[in-house]
Design a protein around this nucleic acid. Structure first.
Length: 817
RNA sequence: GCCGGGGUGGCGGAAUGGCAGACGCAGCGGACUUAAAAUCCGCCGGAGUGAUCCUUGUGGGUUCGAGUCCCUCCCCCGGCACCA
């Protein structure tokens, strides 16, 4: 009797039908509230693996749920299509990056369609197409126009394997985010975005519902710290600068400075180095330059450095202190120079010990007798050896010394950030060309808006030389200056792909609009995104850049909101062999064969059932058969027909109330779980309803109408999870097309209410008995029943009852002594 | 080192401070079958004949009552890490 349904047949049938009817195409309909459900679009790597499905299927389920709840839902999909792998494929296999990328798009689009999501494919966006990157370039010009893009020389992160510079955020543990090669430093002229101008705003997440850990990561990345700027006077033969400035969070320790340390790359080092120190200094600089960040930043590494032979004067006490260089000082933070207070800083302490530099206590530990310190004392204390500040608590001293500096004109309170400007030049081919021109007469000139897009030439050399491939392309490089029409050269670097993903969610709102990057009216309707789901690995890259970008264009008046994503949710990572799936590790699991064999609906449901969505976990297909079995049980219980037994009127009445109660409780549970994205327990609830229906069918004790209500409800509640399966059953049970246009079921609190409860009887907190009692039972009655319980009685026989605790609807706890 | 998240049966996991182990997987027993698969029914944390006792990483605490709250320590995952 039991039948196995044929997923392959019904899934392709309904996917075709939905596409034909444009069931999921959306317009800006004012009669319903809007809901923008965005899933991070995939990079066009070639294949969708099970991890992609884990990101996409549950978010589609939630979007479908919202749709049934009556929202006008935009749930778009597209492709992040610019990036290095395309170019590497070109180098390795001689395929043009465009060809490679578009082939991958084809394949991934097919895979994405097999999920059975409500993606509105008429809104698809592909970032590497000129109709898209024209506007990426346009935004670049806008940022330039508003002084948010500039060209600067800076020490940059260089990935020797990708042969490209990286933004700070793209360096993970001293390694390239894409290829894991160790990053080294180079000095290059590059284009940067002034993301630091938004540091204070980026560190706040007011009015948005984001995971705490992502907010903390972003806050740490901004790395705001309050302190003081201190100027040390410099009087060095042949050096124009008359001071060196440092940043410190501990101005209260200023009187304890016994030396100064500059970063090896600091521009003053060459000028300050005395002739007799030159050899040692140069050797040290050479050595630290050779080291990668990994070696250099290793916490274990001993503090070492070299003495320049120069001195500066600490203005507060007139002391001359020696100037050293050491690679524990970073050029890119603060001013690239620090005042060293060995008594109260662990690094300075280690350095002073190694080179026998004086250590002077200026913050007295609580029971300090004036002796030498065993280690740096970094806690607060009382200021000593600090002239007019002696006796002041150091916490107070921080402010007092900073104010003193300000009054004297030697510095003052200031704020420093860890965040650096966003470096966006890439010396590669497969990206949007930076729309800038260099003219001998006019200097740096932006390309005129009417001349966009600056097209990527099709014929380019893809051999990685470390220079931009476009540089070798004469036809591309040589152009006319937009200002004077004279001979000029194009910028040959391309834009970091992360700019493409800063605005794709705006493009989805009006993907074919050609009057601008987006239609302002449509963006006003859809934005901001109501729920954005994707991996947490983008915490300080994509998610950070996109927030900056939106704030920047808000200040240009292009949009009227400052946060693009109202709610953010990070799904967990699906692992294979305890590692994240990736092509390079060769551990990818493709969903295709599971889909072929068991159907997309089973795969969707299984992925959601394995655990809480934000948890992820090791991929293990041993339970997927169970999911398939369950759907088959639903298939059979729905289609096999139901026969109410005759002559069961009285008995049947209770069974019927019980069934309806169960159904309405299930609606309540499933709705709550859907709202909170608790998909695993949502599916458990539907399984319990199925099991209940199987028992009811056996007994035949309810009326046909109650049975139908139960079956219809089960299908409706299951529709977001198993869209093809439920569409088929909805039709076969005589309903109209489509189940996905049905309203989400509502529960009736009265029907869902329990009539009887299990009253637990405890003695001293230990379970002794369970009583079935009416839900309306009074406290006195409950206590009376508990004290009369045959099972509980022996446990308080001969003892004194100290108190009886009653918890409404749950238990009675008899406390005895 | 610092900041998050986590540790519950053989496994994935469930549990507003109130019946620990829902739901599922695996396993075991049974029905159907010549047989197997599929399907269906039952059992399924540990000890004990039993009443009962033990059990949510460790040790302590708060509470009538703790997987849940507080403190100590151990382990796993993620992030940051010479940021002056």
């Amino acid at each position: 009797m039991a039948v196995r349904y044929n997923p392959r047949e019904i899934e392709s049938k309904w996917q075709e039908k939905w596409a034909e009817d444009r069931l999921y195409e959306v317009t800006e309909d004012g009669s319903q509230p809007k809901w923008y459900a965005l899933t991070m679009f995939p990079y066009t790597s070639g294949d969708l693996h099970i991890g992609h499905w884990y990101a996409m299927a549950p978010s589609d389920v939630h979007a479908r749920f919202k749709r049934m709840q009556g929202y006008n839902v935009l749930h778009p999909m597209g492709f992040d299509a610019f990036g290095l792998p395309a170019e590497n494929a070109a180098i390795k296999r001689g395929i043009h990056p465009y060809t490679w990328t578009m082939q991958n798009v084809e394949n991934m689009r097919r895979q994405l369609k097999s999920i059975g999501a409500i993606y509105d494919w008429s809104r698809e966006v592909i970032t590497c197409l000129p109709e898209y990157y024209k506007w990426t370039q346009w935004f670049f010009l806008k940022l330039y126009e508003h002084d948010l893009a500039y060209r600067g020389k800076a020490p940059v992160n260089w990935c020797p394997q990708c042969r490209v510079v990286l933004a700070n955020e793209q360096v993970i543990d001293g390694k390239c985010w894409r290829c894991d090669a160790e990053v080294v430093h180079r000095d290059l002229e590059q284009w940067l975005f002034r993301i630091t101008r938004y540091a204070d705003e980026l560190k706040e997440h007011d009015g948005i519902d984001w995971p705490e850990r992502i907010k903390i990561m972003q806050r740490n990345w901004v790395g705001r710290s309050e302190g003081a700027d201190v100027s040390f006077s410099l009087d060095h033969p042949g050096v124009a600068e008359k001071d060196i400035r440092v940043f410190t969070t501990r101005p209260d320790t200023l009187f304890g400075v016994t030396f100064m340390v500059l970063a090896p790359e600091h521009p003053l080092v060459a000028k300050l180095t005395m002739p007799d120190r030159k050899a040692a200094i140069e050797e040290y600089i050479e050595r630290s330059r050779r080291e990668t960040d990994i070696e250099r930043l290793s916490a274990e590494k001993e503090k070492d450095g070299a003495f320049t032979g120069a001195y500066v004067t600490n203005r507060v006490n007139g002391e001359k202190v020696p100037v050293w260089i050491a690679d524990y000082v970073l050029l890119t933070y603060g001013t690239g120079a620090v005042m060293a207070v060995p008594a109260h800083d662990e690094r300075d302490f280690a350095f002073a010990k190694k080179y026998n530099l004086p250590i002077r206590v200026v913050i007295a530990p609580p029971d300090w007798k004036g002796g030498e310190l065993e280690q740096a004392y970094i806690e607060p204390g009382t200021m000593v050896n600090s002239a007019q500040f002696n006796g002041m608590p150091s916490e107070q001293g921080i402010k007092a010394v900073a104010e003193h500096l300000k009054k004297q004109g030697w510095g003052g309170p200031t704020v420093s950030y860890k965040l650096r400007d966003w470096l966006i030049s890439r010396q590669r081919y497969w990206g949007a060309p930076i729309p800038m021109v260099y003219c001998d007469k006019c200097g740096i000139v932006p390309v005129l808006e009417k001349d966009l897009p600056v097209l990527l030439p099709e014929d380019a050399e893809f051999r990685p030389t470390g220079e931009s491939p476009l540089q070798l392309n004469e036809k591309f490089v040589n152009t006319a200056c937009p200002k004077c029409d004279g001979a000029a050269r194009r910028e040959t670097d391309t834009i970091d792909g992360f700019l493409c993903s800063c605005w794709y969610f705006l493009r989805y709102c009006s993907p074919h609009y050609d009057g601008g990057a987006f239609d302002p009216e449509k963006v006003k309707y859809w934005m901001p995104v109501d729920i954005y789901t994707g991996g947490a690995e983008h915490a300080v890259m994509h998610l950070f850049y996109a927030r900056f970008f939106i704030k920047a264009i808000r200040d240009m008046g292009l949009v009227d909101f400052g946060e693009p994503f109202t709610k953010l949710f990070n799904q967990g990572i699906i692992l294979a062999q305890r590692q994240k799936m990736s092509k390079s590790k060769g551990n990818v699991v493709t969903p295709d064969e599971y889909v072929n064999e068991l159907g997309a609906d089973t795969v969707r449901a299984y992925l959601m059932f394995i655990g809480p969505w934000d948890q992820g976990g090791e991929w293990d297909d041993s339970g997927i058969g169970g999911m398939s079995r369950w759907l088959n049980r639903v298939w059979n219980v729905v289609l096999d027909g139901y026969q109410a037994r005759s002559g069961v009127a009285l008995e049947g009445e209770k069974a019927q109330v019980d069934l309806r109660r169960f159904v309405h409780q299930t609606i309540r549970r499933v709705t709550g779980d859907m709202e909170r994205l608790h998909f695993n327990t949502m599916i458990s609830a539907l399984m319990e309803l199925t099991n209940y229906l199987l028992k009811v069918r056996e007994s035949g004790n309810v009326a046909g109408s109650a049975w139908r209500e139960a079956v219809d409800t089960l299908l409706l509640l299951l529709a977001p999870t198993a869209p093809h399966f439920t569409e088929e059953l909805w039709q076969r049970t005589g309903h109209g097309y489509s189940i996905h246009n049905q309203p989400w079921p509502k529960w009736d609190e009265v029907l869902a209410r329990e009539e009887e409860i299990t009253l637990v009887v405890q003695v001293n907190g230990k379970l002794r008995d369970r009583l079935t009692v009416p839900a309306s039972i009074t406290e006195d009655e409950a206590k009376r029943l508990a004290l009369e319980s045959e099972k509980a009685k022996p446990h308080f026989a001969g003892k004194t009852i100290a108190s009886v605790i009653y918890v409404q609807g749950r238990l009675v706890n008899v406390v005895v002594r």
